[in-house]
Design a protein around this nucleic acid. Structure first.
Lengths: 173, 173
DNA sequence: AGCGGATTGAGAACCGGTCTCGGAACCGAT
DNA sequence: ATCGGTTCCGAGACCGGTTCTCAATCCGCT
């Protein structure tokens, strides 16, 4: 942070979280919004996590670090991060939302195991192409998209069992 | 319904709703679940509609027909229809769910206008292929999927304005 | 008609999520 | 450092969709 002038691109990992935090700081300044302790703490939690966190998860993580932020603040901050494009909101049909760091423009989609709850991500370039095609065909200007595939994964024995059971029951739809 | 033995396939339209109702009756019998008046009325509403109905919409439609069913019953019945594969549940980020008849296996996806709220559907065969590919690549057995594209449509002037505004603001993500 | 079991309905409970508003923190300028 | 205006924060009330409760009722069958 102190003398980045000479080297052009290579630098120690520094951590995605730290970079994201710098970006957040910049975005806030640009909008003349204060960089408060709470915003920092909540963003930190999200940036350091590789999982999809619920508002409750964030509050719990804060507590664990001896920090604290009101419910409203947690929600407000998460909404802010989404608005700034630094996080994305997901709904895995659990009755509440989950949030995740949005690193750059890399759009990715989800496979959700209905058996164990694991959420894995994938990115398929053709998907981008097809959906862009659909949008233009329909005179639609895409803002964002959600592609969710629900089913059973093959991670654990229980999931594989369910997978087999489902396959045998026959694909109804 | 009375003598379907001789003719093989042609028959008067009969209405998709009536067919669906027959299917429902069969599914319930198969599971030894009673075919109650409320279940029939609620299913009727859904089967006859081509739109995505909320639980509230269903209750309102019932009232309009001089029928009535308790809130709990409406929710329970909609959940039942989903479980039987006769309806699908959708979440268009409105804070509540919507339901729609699921006719056969025709999977279709949605374009949701964030400006006017219109929901249009599309079906793109390549999408099926790509998602099937992704699933097998990941050892995943698909049960169902949801593809939602949020953006602005070009139906009304207001939407077109928003569309232009968004395009000019530049695609952030 | 009668029986056993599942469904129904009114309202309470539940639960994410939002709103309110007095007090505290932030930021830029002094 | 400090000051002032603006914004944010937090505790809790509130909201609205959905689920739960349980006695009364209905369904399907004999």
């Amino acid at each position: 942070m102190s003398n980045p002038s000479t080297t052009v691109s290579t630098r120690p990992p520094l951590g995605c979280a730290a970079v994201m935090m710098q970006v957040l700081r910049g975005e806030l300044r640009e909008r003349e919004l204060p960089f408060t302790h709470q915003r920092e703490a909540i963003a930190q939690i999200l940036f350091e996590s590789t999982r999809h966190l619920s508002a409750d998860d964030v509050a719990a993580a804060l507590r664990q670090r001896g920090e604290h932020a009101g419910k409203a603040t947690v929600y407000r901050t998460l909404a802010l991060l989404v608005e700034l494009g630094l996080a994305t909101e997901h709904d895995f049909d659990e009755g509440f939302k989950r949030y995740e760091t949005q690193v750059g423009a890399a759009q990715h989609d989800h496979l959700i195991c209905t058996e164990c709850g694991r959420v894995s991500t994938f990115h398929h370039p053709e998907l981008d192409r097809v959906l862009a095609e659909v949008a233009t065909e329909n005179g639609f200007e895409t803002i964002t998209r959600q592609v969710k595939v629900f089913g059973t994964c093959s991670e654990s024995a229980a999931c594989r069992d369910a997978q087999r059971a489902y396959r045998e029951a026959g694909p109804t739809s």
